[in-house]
Simulated assay, not measured.
Amino acid sequence: METKEYIESGILELYVYGLLTESESIEVAAMAKKHDEINDEIIAIEKAIVALSSSFSPFHSVANFEKIKIKAKLELKHGKVVDMKPASTWSQYVGWAAAVLFLLGFAYQYVQLTQTKQAIEVVGSEKDKLKSEYALLDQESKITEKNLSIVRDIKNTGVTLGGQAVAPQSFAKAYWNKDTKVTYIDAAGLPKPPKGKVYQVWALKLSPVLTPTSIGLLTEFDSNNQKIFKVENTGYAEAFGITLEPEGGSPSPTMDQLYTLGKV
């Protein structure tokens, strides 16, 4: 095969791209050492690939070309030439190479876009989490403000309820507005009720006969972080008491389960 036909066969382009078999690569290397025209053509192809690679995928061109250079510089032995069909035109090769590089560049951009979208999703998730936490803190703040207003209201009579025999360390406080009849219980000094039990609040009339009236249950004790409960309106009371009762409450107080008691 003449030198011109060999160059036009397209084998040199495949050699530069590393797409030949080992025996074919050996033959091309041998031909390049033997014919300056072939060696010059290989160099020209390398330069064209570098130019294209820099245009379409600048971040990968250096690494790819280094692999090509290593392939081109191999000191290989003589072998049999594999005849190949002549390439149609140089412009077709350039178009093929450009298409490959374009796809590589597009794939790189797609990966970058995917990573950006994932980062945006993470930021959005964190933003939603912060909104949720802010809403919770805002709610807690409003509850705290309300509870402070109860404690600071000079129209509320504060009644301290001291611990009794069953729980000497317990304590509570009642805030009773005699005008509006509204009553709040601060139960922060009570221990967590056992499962199946609930605290029940009583308004007591002491004379002429001890008369207890239930004014509410301290339900959802665990979830009430500040432990301030609004109970039923209290029209008349000489004392307040809190007992531990079965879940759902009792019609009358269980006196041996009287946790706190205090006179108005």
Rank of each mutant, 00 (worst) to 15 (best):
T114N: 15
P86D: 14
D186K: 05
N147V: 05
L261E: 01
T234Q: 01
L76F: 04
V82L: 07
N233Y: 07
G189V: 10
Q164M: 07
D138L: 11
T180W: 13
Q164A: 01
P168A: 05
F240C: 02
K69Q: 05
P208Q: 11
L14M: 07
M31S: 13
A48Q: 12
V151D: 07
L74K: 14
D40R: 13
A87T: 10
N225L: 05
N224P: 09
E27I: 02
P194K: 07
A172T: 05
G79E: 15
G79H: 13
D256L: 09
Y15N: 10
L19Y: 11
L204A: 02
D36W: 08
P253Y: 11
N147M: 04
Q169P: 01
D179M: 00
A174G: 10
S53W: 02
V123G: 00
T213P: 04
I215G: 00
F56N: 05
L190K: 05
E66S: 08
D138M: 09
I43V: 04
S88N: 10
P191Y: 04
I38V: 12
A119T: 10
Y236G: 00
S9C: 09
P194Q: 08
L217D: 02
I185N: 02
K77C: 03
V201H: 03
I70W: 12
L244D: 02
K127H: 01
K67W: 15
K131E: 14
P168S: 06
E66C: 06
V28P: 00
M1Y: 08
A135W: 03
V201W: 02
V16I: 13
K142C: 04
N39V: 01
D186A: 09
N64S: 07
G162A: 13
T180S: 15
S214I: 14
E8P: 06
A63P: 03
W96F: 11
P208K: 12
K146E: 13
S125C: 01
Y199T: 00
T160R: 01
E2M: 04
N147D: 10
G163D: 04
G162S: 14
K129I: 03
T254E: 10
T219K: 10
Y199Q: 01
E5T: 11
K73V: 00
T211Q: 14
T89K: 15
F65E: 05
K227R: 15
L113V: 04
